[in-house]
Simulated scan of single mutants.
Amino acid sequence: MKLILTNEVTGLGAPGDVVEVKDGYGRNYLIPRGYAILWSRGAEKQIESLRKAREAREIRDLGTAQEVAQRLGSLKVTLKTRAGQGGRLFGSITSGDIAEAVKAAGGPELDRRRIEIGNPIKSVGSHQIAVRLHPEVSAKVDVEVVGA
């Protein structure tokens, strides 16, 4: 099945990429969740607009990505959220929360889809988060979660 990705899918591609996947994966997972649309000749125009939007968001080159990675590595990010007894949070910290906290701490504006949280953050304390800045560069961000 030939599809056009509308969102970034880890291990498959970025928005605007034309990919060939198995029928069941495309029909049962990618299309219903809005990650992809069926490929057609009329969709070629959509591919072009998606690529332009991706290029505007994407970090241009490897050198810039490494500079941003260094800035993120030295950044101290603190998130204040409601917590109960024993340090358990009411809910969990999302990638959108982390992107806002990085920006508030004076860091660069990050796309929440590029932030990879290994295990859900459901307790106060220090956590390390990975951010994919470029296909060859990823940065680690130390996030301190504080109960309010």
Rank of each mutant, 00 (worst) to 15 (best):
R51S: 05
E20H: 14
G96V: 09
E67I: 04
D23M: 03
A139F: 05
R41S: 08
V19W: 04
V18N: 01
E58S: 00
V102I: 10
V21I: 09
A104R: 12
R54E: 14
V146C: 04
K103A: 05
G147K: 08
V77D: 03
R132A: 01
V19K: 05
V124S: 12
L110C: 02
T10F: 15
G125S: 11
P108M: 03
P135R: 06
I37D: 02
R82V: 07
K76P: 02
T10H: 15
E48A: 14
G16S: 00
G63W: 14
H134F: 13
Q46Y: 10
V131C: 00
K103H: 12
A101Q: 03
G42E: 03
K80G: 13
G87L: 07
L110M: 01
E55T: 11
K22F: 09
R51Q: 00
D97G: 02
F90I: 15
G125D: 10
D17N: 08
S74I: 03
V21T: 06
N119G: 15
R114S: 15
L3F: 09
L50W: 04
Q128A: 05
Q46R: 10
L50S: 01
V77I: 08
E58Q: 01
K22R: 01
I121Q: 12
N28V: 07
K103M: 09
A99V: 02
L75P: 00
L5K: 04
Q70T: 09
Q128I: 04
T6L: 07
E144D: 11
G106R: 07
W39G: 09
S95G: 10
G147C: 07
G26E: 01
G42I: 07
I31Q: 07
V145A: 05
A14R: 11
G96E: 08
L110K: 03
A139H: 00
E58H: 04
